[in-house]
Amino acid sequence: MLSRQHIITYGIALVFILALNFLLPRMMPGDPLMAIYGEEALVAMTPQLKAELVERFALDQSIWQQVGAYVLALLRGELGYSYYYNAPVFSVVLGRLPWTLLLVGTSLVLSTILGIVLGVESGWRRGSWTDRTMLAGLMSLNGFPDFFVGMVLLIVFGVIGGIFPLAGALTPYSGLTGWASVADIVTHMVLPVTALSLAHLSGGYLLTRNTMITVLKEPYILTARAKGLPPHAVKYRHAGRNSLLPVVTQTGIWAGRVFTGALFVELVFAYPGVGYLTYEAMMARDYPVIQGLFLVVAVAVLAANFLVELSYRKLDPRVSRAH
């Protein structure tokens, strides 16, 4: 299914990322320890701790031994220690990950599906009143960044309407359990998910609509119609299926930035995701966390690409031959 060439490509990318992550702090001017641990660490720094850190990173040894120590640490799941959070970076990031996955994943699925459906319907009715309204509406929506949409939603439905909570991922200290806690999480999600989905909807929609218009001119669409298939079958089984590829590519690209893509929206809604964490870490100059995030995000991009490629093969059998 996957050729050796593919595996090698992904391997090279991974090595490159790791190398960057390893080299960057060591290339910064000044004390590498400070670059690795940030100013925060200086406060807690004692000669004893310093000696321990130098030993852990093998800073007093050759560069290759440093590489070895770095890789070994990675294999143990050690991304470093955040003195700001006073916790290992790994657990800090891991604590935020589910929230972002939930938020971005939901909106990714929603906006992609909705974008495809709207695109298919709009392309099918090209030139009609429905098509033109949708096109105009989604084009103008495309012009607004997600945080702006988020702010508008927050003001309208949160501040004025008071329907949805203003911030966070769940009501703190509510002690809710079971379905009640699920409902609480969902209500907290509605606005940020809507903001993210709306912002990304038009991309998928426009791509699907354009591809749809091209695909509808293909001879096999005529064949499908000649077979006496009802419109929905022609639209989705024959035309829609062939219009998927570009949207999947786009979704894949976006999915790669799953942890940082929601940064602004998480900020607006004070949502405790990875994006918010990135912001916090940057504000606090918490280098270990920033580096950890860099690694996680880069690996996520690779993984998303990989998944998209897998789905290509499923969606369009012709791809398995192309490189």
């Binding site: 000649a226 024959h238 062939n242 369009d316 059998p317 012709r318």
Partner: peptide
């Protein structure tokens, strides 16, 4: 139809 393979849906 006249277009041969183009008359068949490539993904089915």
């Amino acid at each position: 139809f006249q277009d041969g393979a183009a008359s068949l849906n490539p993904v089915h």
